[in-house]
Each structure stands twice: as C-alpha cells, then as structure tokens.
Amino acid sequence: MTNAAVSDVPMVHADRVSKSFGSNEVLKSISLTVTQGEVMCLVGPSGSGKSTFLRCINHLERVDAGRLSVDGILVGYEERGDKLYELKPREAARQRRDIGMVFQRFNLFPHMTALENIIEAPIRVNKLKKEAAIAHGKELLARVGLADKEDAYPAHLSGGQQQRVAIARALAMEPKLMLFDEPTSALDPELVGEVLDVMKGLADSGMTMIVVTHEMGFAREVADQLVFMDGGVVVESGDPDEVLGNPQHQRTKAFLSKVL
C-alpha cells in the first residue's frame, strides 16, 4: 500500500474496454483500476471474460473498444494526434517485458531444465550476461523453494513445482506487474498450497498482481480488491471481505453459494 504513494499513475487502467471474438462479445465495457503495489483478484464463472481481460493486458489479445493502459502507457496501440496506430511487434514485445504472466497450464519449455527456462528470456531478450542470468536464476529458484531442482526437466517436476518454476521464470524479467491466469486450476488439490504460498510471498514483497482465481480463501487473505465478473461485465467489486461476506448482487450471491 505504501508503494501507491510513489506514483499517482495507476499500474493498470481500463476504461470501457470491450472485446469480441466474431459476434461473441466477451468483454463489455470493462472499467477497472489497479494501483501500484495492489493485488486484484478476478473471480467469476468460466466464460465470464476474466482470462480474456488478462490476456488483453499482455497484448495477447487486441482490445476492440475503450482504452487500456499499463503504467500510463496505452496497450497495443500508439496514440499520435487523434489517431491510433497499431504497435509493431517489436514495440509490443518491449511492453511485454515489464509484465510477467503465469499460465494455468504452466507452459514451461519442456526441452529446457528449470534453470534454463528461467534464464532464457533474460539472456535472449534483455541481453543479460549468462553468468549474471544464472546467478539471478538460482536466486529466484531459491525464492520459490526449488534451489535443488535447477537441473530438473519440467517432466520430472510435480505440477506445483512446475508452476513455481513458471513464476520464477516470469520474475526473472523483473516485471512491474504480474498476471496470474488461474495458476492453481490445473493442480492436484494437495499441490495448490505451495503455489499460493509463493504468490502470497510475492504480494507481501509489494508486487502489483492481477490474479484470476477460484481460490476464495486466497482472494480473501491476499487481495486488496476483489472483482466479480460475469458475462463479460464487472458485476461487483471492492474489498474482498465485503464482496465475499456481503454480496450485493444476485449473480454474485448465486456464484458464491456454489464455490464457497
């Protein structure tokens, strides 16, 4: 929270953002603000547009209407005069470097060891020296509790271990913002805790995070802001205890009665 005072510019600002796939309108005029150092949890039934919103922030999908900006910079487009220009791939890639993303299916590179997964982008993209990248990578592996797994291939790691490596890989780029797309949904129940613990530690360290999740306990404990989405719209948002404990909207009540 103290970090919010550093800058007035919100880390993520969405102003009436819409997105359609063909005739299917997935996001309908979403307006949200995530301040620096804040943890926002996005919850809602599947197909509600949570993941699409997350992917828009990271340029993996293009916004159709409205304005979406990260750290004050417009996502996907450049505004010159009164015209919008599509970003070149190279410029989009540059913006992505500051945004870490963790996927539901981990998406580790299976032909690389845990350490190689982590140092790949710092070396190739940030042109970091190999020794420096390795030192940083080992540090990150220790931070996620996998110091002894640097030479393990993803296939030899449990799901929870793979997801922790994936978090370390995203952190290796030293992002300003971390996006988590249902990071524990593909895990066996007994492995969920280890990943959430790492995420809690990350939140405590002041990282700005947007987390799409079904883990209501985590949302209640860690989130500064909880947003409930359904059918491509923000139904309700606010303090997690408030939204979870005393939902105002009928749809929120219906959803929470199923998951809690």
Partner: peptide
C-alpha cells in the same frame, strides 16, 4: 507444438524468430 509454448515465449518478450528457433523448432 502446444500453442501455450508460443504464448509463454511471447509473454516473456521474445521475438517471433527467438520463439521459433529457441522454443518451437527444438520441440
């Protein structure tokens, strides 16, 4: 090769050529 591999590499800021030569082709 799984689409997620491409997305993961892209999300890390890797260019198309880097994604291809380092991630997709080896797999």
């Amino acid at each position: 090769v799984d689409k997620g591999q491409d997305e993961a590499a892209t999300a890390l800021g890797m260019s198309w050529l880097q994604t291809m030569t380092r991630v997709v082709i080896p797999q």
